[in-house]
Amino acid sequence: MQYRRLGRSGLQVSELSLGSWITYHNQVGTSAAIEMLAQAGDAGVNFFDNAEGYAAGQSEVVMGEAFKALKWPRLNYVVSTKFYWGLSREGNTVNRKDTLNRKYLMQAIDGSLQRMQLDFIDLVYCHRPDPFTPIEETVRAMSDMITQGKALYWGTSEWSAAEIRAAWDIAERHHLHKPVMEQPQYNLFHRQRVEQEYARLYEDIGLGLTTWSPLASGLLTGKYKNGSAPAGSRGAMESLAFLRDGLLDPARNAAVAQLEGIAAELGGNVAQLAIAWVNKNPHVSTVILGASKAAQLADNLGALALTPKLTPEVLARIDAMTQGLVR
């Protein structure tokens, strides 16, 4: 395992990390979380990603219980959470969901700390942009979390380049804590934001990336090649029905079948190739993996062996196979 600085900060995160979206509480209970966090830690993973909105806060509870059971020194791991959607959809939800206003944010951090049983959270993200709250209000609230010692670094997730730059400029102008990182989706089929829209931000403000969905929600595992969603897969989950059309796309699945040949040549499988491809981008600080079983996590960690094998020639072949399918 190699470690990379998070943007221009001094914090170092493992090039592969472990996230909890969809899996924790829904598919992974506390005992399985303990097993996989220990497995990841043994492999050198030091960053674990979460969010308030995952399983309505229960994902944070599961991860917090796992950390407590593992008894790791707090300096040994980096943990994140994200705010925007809130927890409750019942009753009066004004100022409690779909917002980044100060009232919500200053209470949300306290809730996450309690659920995760931590004194502070290393990385906190604005999970989506809020068009109805002035960016300056959000920037000041996020900066205050750090000043109060409840968080160490803050950033954004799925914000536009213009929104990130606006937040950074406000923080610079008012001597506030600046956003350090962005968490975008990034994989072989979803590339334009990372490779084009954010291009100036890497040099101009030192933006770091903690990317999610390296396997395009499972499309890049090859499991959807036959045109149907296997039982137990994300494509078969009714709560994720919005993903189904993309996962069953014939053209993309044909490209996945071609990519399997390159993966075999390199001594791996297509999932490992897809993760290694994301890891190869020097602007990516860490690639967030998702796993519901220890065997799946072990397989995904095998991407480390393929990363150095992605020569310019191999990368060009991959680009040719995915041409016209990227957004």
Rank of each mutant, 00 (worst) to 15 (best):
G91A: 04
L220R: 06
N253C: 06
L18Q: 08
E313V: 12
W212Q: 10
F48L: 11
L87W: 06
M181Y: 09
P214A: 10
V45T: 00
E158N: 13
T147Y: 12
S9K: 11
E163A: 14
I205Y: 11
L215K: 09
Q272Y: 05
Q114N: 08
D299V: 06
D299L: 13
L297P: 08
L325D: 13
A69Q: 00
Q117H: 11
Y153N: 08
G227D: 04
L289R: 06
Q192H: 11
L37F: 09
Y77L: 01
T138N: 07
L247P: 02
D169T: 12
Y104L: 07
L247D: 10
D42E: 15
W154H: 09
S80N: 10
P134M: 02
D122F: 01
D42F: 00
A43C: 03
G222C: 05
L315H: 03
T286R: 04
R173L: 14
Q258S: 14
S31F: 00
H25F: 08
W154S: 05
W154G: 03
D299N: 15
T133N: 11
G268T: 13
P129Y: 00
E172K: 14
L6I: 08
V124L: 02
G268I: 12
L315I: 09
G53M: 15
S160L: 11
I22R: 14
R173Q: 15
Y153D: 09
T322S: 08
E163H: 14
R89F: 05
A320E: 15
Q117T: 01
K223D: 01
K280Q: 15
S9C: 12
Y84V: 03
V61C: 06
K225V: 09
Y84T: 05
P308C: 12
F48I: 12
D119R: 07
A166G: 07
S217I: 00
C126V: 03
V79E: 10
N95H: 15
A264K: 09
L209I: 13
G7N: 01
A271R: 00
I262N: 13
D144M: 10
W159S: 10
A43G: 05
A276T: 02
R193H: 11
D49L: 01
Q27F: 13
A56F: 04
D130M: 09
I275T: 07
S9E: 10
G86W: 03
L207W: 10
D144E: 15
Y153H: 15
I22Y: 10
T311R: 11
A141E: 07
Y104E: 08
E52W: 12
K223C: 00
T93K: 08
D245A: 15
F242K: 08
N46W: 05
K225N: 11
V45K: 00
S88I: 02
A167Y: 02
A166R: 15
A276S: 06
T307Y: 02
A276M: 06
H25E: 15
G235A: 12
